[in-house]
């Protein structure tokens, strides 16, 4: 597949969404709503669940399955309230020493007048800063599209795992093409140049693991992913150097020393 074919695959409506992963990998999910400040964002779902027998805090970005649901979830583009809900849940996870698992799938943070009025920048910055400093184990799973700062806000984790056909990029290939090549139709070329595939991310050290998609969405797919996640989370539990290790994980990108 070319990079742009991967972008299209990552955006495909038939791919499992965050809620599919939540219901197939975790048990007893209880969803929590609201940022305690302004409202509840439909694009970000969060709450408590068990991974095997480990209680965890889950935060996912859900695009929705049908048109009505997609509208109520603003097509998986979170508003500031979504990131503020995520921050609230992360702090709560830290208080109760629960690992945080994020499941990311977004073309980016919502772009609108209201989002700007309510401080989209501040909300994303706060989410990145909170997540990178958490003392509890954190794992980010990128299942589809990882669009820019809106995705990074939930991916400042100890490890980032990417589905084989997920993509992670600083800008959409279309946006990049229209700015640099003055033509959105050059998106395919931009996608190639941006190095946004899972293999690219693995090579840069931006991701630690690629999850094969051979049997995407099947019971075997979820059960193997579940055991990998459980193993990873367990290996981080009880450690007191996670925040520093996570800082170094991000510190290494473009390091001069």
């Amino acid at each position: 597949m070319t990079s742009y074919e991967k972008v299209k695959a990552a955006r495909s409506e038939s791919r499992p969404g965050a809620l599919d992963y939540i219901s197939n990998i975790f048990s007893s999910f209880i969803e929590f709503h609201g940022d305690r400040k302004f409202g509840d964002d439909g694009a970000i779902v969060g709450g408590l669940a068990y991974l095997g027998d480990i209680p965890v805090t889950l935060i996912g970005i859900e695009r929705g399955k049908n048109t009505l649901e997609r509208i109520s979830r603003s097509f998986g583009s979170p508003n500031p309230e979504g990131y503020r809900k995520a921050v609230r849940l992360m702090r709560e996870a830290e208080k109760f020493s629960r690992p945080v698992i994020t499941i990311v799938d977004t073309s980016g943070a919502y772009c609108g007048v209201g989002a700007e009025e309510r401080g989209q920048s501040e909300a994303i910055a706060e989410s990145i800063t909170t997540m990178i400093g958490l003392s509890v184990p954190t794992l980010a799973l990128l299942i589809g599209e990882g669009g820019s700062g809106g995705a990074l806000a939930l991916m400042a984790a100890s490890e980032v795992w990417m589905l084989e056909n997920s993509v992670y990029s600083v800008i959409s290939p279309e946006g990049c093409a229209s700015i640099l090549f003055k033509d959105a139709k050059e998106a395919s070329k931009a996608a190639e140049n941006l190095k946004l595939t899972a293999e690219d991310a693995l090579e840069f050290g931006v991701a630690e693991k690629i999850i094969p998609e051979d049997n995407l969405g099947s019971p075997e797919f979820y059960s193997s992913l579940k055991s990998m996640m459980e193993g990873k989370i367990r290996s981080m539990m009880g450690r007191d150097d996670l925040a520093y290790e996570r800082y170094l994980r991000f510190r290494k990108f473009g390091e001069s020393r």
Binding site: I128, I132, A156, V170, I171, C176
Partner: peptide, 26 residues
């Protein structure tokens, strides 16, 4: 904003600098 010519490595600078601000703040 981010320098798109550096792809993901540019995006990672948002997390890296935020981590540094956080440590300074602590």
């Amino acid at each position: 904003g981010a320098r798109m010519q550096e792809g993901l490595l540019s995006l990672m600078q948002m997390a890296k600098t935020s981590g540094a601000v956080k440590r300074h703040s602590e």
